[in-house]
Every structure is written in structure tokens, then in C-alpha cells.
Design a protein around this nucleic acid. Structure first.
Lengths: 148, 148
DNA sequence: ACTTTTTAGATTGATATCAACATGAATTAG
DNA sequence: CTAATTCATGTTGATATCAATCTAAAAAGT
């Protein structure tokens, strides 16, 4: 193996071990699977639970606000709503005060499902702190790793 | 508004503010977008960069090992390889010692692209520590939030 | 040797994700 | 009061993600 190759492999190892983006993706995937499992009894994915939850407010929410709350693209939100709308959990209507906008509301069925799902979320979430370690300089990365 | 509704909204707020899964998804999405932007000049997404990087090793890697390293499903890895294989960055062949297995190798083009991409990754990654705050009990969540 | 089980991946189908582009409504410039 | 601009969202196309199911190969049990 040439010296150049060794350097390349060394760089690769450094990227692999330090990249916060990779650590975050990995932790996010594993957490999603974990909560997907926990929420399977009520037929929701972790993402759908977060979405339903974010729609549970006194006043109907607009798409932009929810997309930004969840940190996802507006078009991703549009797509994510479709299965929920099909299942009658969410209702979407034109904002009468600005006809470009849409307002999303939980239906009673959506409310009920969210209520059923929340305890499942809570028990699963209660398990997580046990995975985390002490804190210091590189602790975010260690935490993301611990969750993986 | 009924007392019940208020309780429901309160619960929702608590879930939204504390859920580590949501925080992780959000941070992961934002980080992915950030690195997608940084790597656009070389035509790679953040995920493709991580994958190419994880394939850069002395010995060809098997799918199971790489999937587990990246924390993703084996079937997701199968799918993720296709665009890279089409572009001639990765080569996949049957493992002669176990004909169920596949061995993945970076092609010279893949090596070259990875070499070109790494400095882009490095400059972007160098910006992240500035987003992070001090550390203590709830620091993971704060960090995920800070990255969002 | 032969059957059973386990293991490695691939395929399919549903959903998630975003970029690029398109549409239509409100706002602003002139 | 029209024309240009900005804004909120939708559509399309590519890729990502995983569960469920399938196939084929290796390993284990008899």
C-alpha cells in the first residue's frame, strides 16, 4: 500500500469518526426506528406522531409555520400530510384570510389517535436518558453515538 | 376552551419541546441540507459522501458492515448504491469466499471524487462548533436545537 | 448426504426528503 | 390602477428510508 493510500485512509477514518452530520443522521435513524416500533400499535410512524402533535393547537396552523417547526421542507410537509388526510386524521382547508395559505386541523379521530399515542411515546422516551453519558467537550458527539 | 383541551395542548407542548427523537430528526435534516449545499459543487449529497467515505478502506467492504456503520437498513444501502454505481463511483461484485455476499469498492473515479469532496466537508464542518453552546444536563437537546 | 435453519442481499410498496419548476394570490412600484 | 414582485403552496422527479417478503447460499442438525 502506498503512503498516499495510507493518508487517504487516515483522512477517511477521521471524517467517519468526527463528522457531526453522519453522527446526527445515524442517531436520527436509530431513534426513528425505535419510536416507529413503539408507535406501531397505533399505526403511526415517529414522524407522523411529531406532525400530529404539532398540529394539536388552539388555532389551526399554517403550513409554513409547521414546516419550520419540524425543520422540514414545505414540499415534504405537503407530501407527509397526504397519508394522514387519507386516514381522516387531519383536515386541510384554504385560509379564508389569505387564499394562498392552507390551514391544517386535527379531526376528532386525529385527536383521539394522538391521545392514544402519547403514552407510548412517553414510555419509550423515558428509556432514552439511560443511554446518555456524562457531559463535557465532545459530549454531543458522544451522545449521538450513544443513541446509535 | 375546555379544561381537557388545555391539558391536551399542554401535553403537546411538552412533547414538542422535549422529544429527543424530534430534536434529532430536525437537527439531522438541517445538517443534511447544510452539507448537501456544501457538497453540491462535486455533485454529492451528504449521505452519498458518508457512503463513499465509508467505502474507502484497504479491503473491500461487505454490505452488512457498511449498513451497520452508517446505521441504516441493508435495503436502504442497496438502494443508495445504485446512483453511485450508475455514475461509476463504486463497483459491486460477488464475494468469491461467500457467494451470498457482495463486496463494494471505490473506483478510481470514486476515489478522486471523494478526494475532491473532503475539503468541502472540512470547511463546512469547521463552522459547526461555533453553533454549539456550553454543556450540562439538557445540553444534548440544546445542542440539537442549536444545530436546527 | 439431507433437511432445517440461518444469513446476505434483492425486490416491492409505502412513505419521506428535497430541488427545480409552476401556479395563483397578495403586495408593492410606478 | 395596472405591472412587477414577492409569497404560500403544489407538482414532478430523483433519491432515501424501512417493513415485508423473496431467493439463494452457507451452516447446523440428524
Amino acid at each position: 500500500m502506498s503512503k498516499t493510500d495510507e493518508t487517504a485512509f487516515e483522512t477517511t477514518r477521521r471524517v467517519r469518526d468526527t463528522c457531526l452530520c453522519l453522527h446526527a443522521q445515524r442517531a436520527a435513524r436509530k431513534l426513528a426506528r425505535r419510536f416507529d416500533d413503539a408507535l406501531r400499535p397505533v399505526g403511526l410512524t415517529s414522524g407522523q406522531f411529531s406532525l400530529l402533535n404539532s398540529l394539536n393547537r388552539p388555532e389551526p396552523a399554517g403550513m409554513g409555520a409547521v414546516a419550520s417547526l419540524l425543520g422540514l421542507d414545505r414540499t415534504t410537509l405537503t407530501a407527509a400530510l397526504k397519508p394522514l388526510e387519507r386516514r381522516g386524521l387531519v383536515q386541510i382547508c384554504v385560509d379564508p384570510r389569505d387564499r394562498r395559505g392552507r390551514l391544517m386541523t386535527l379531526t376528532p379521530a386525529g385527536q383521539a389517535l394522538l391521545t392514544a399515542a402519547t403514552p407510548l411515546w412517553a414510555s419509550e422516551h423515558a428509556l432514552l436518558p439511560g443511554l446518555l453519558v456524562e457531559r463535557e467537550v465532545d459530549s454531543l458527539r458522544r451522545d449521538l453515538l450513544a443513541l446509535s
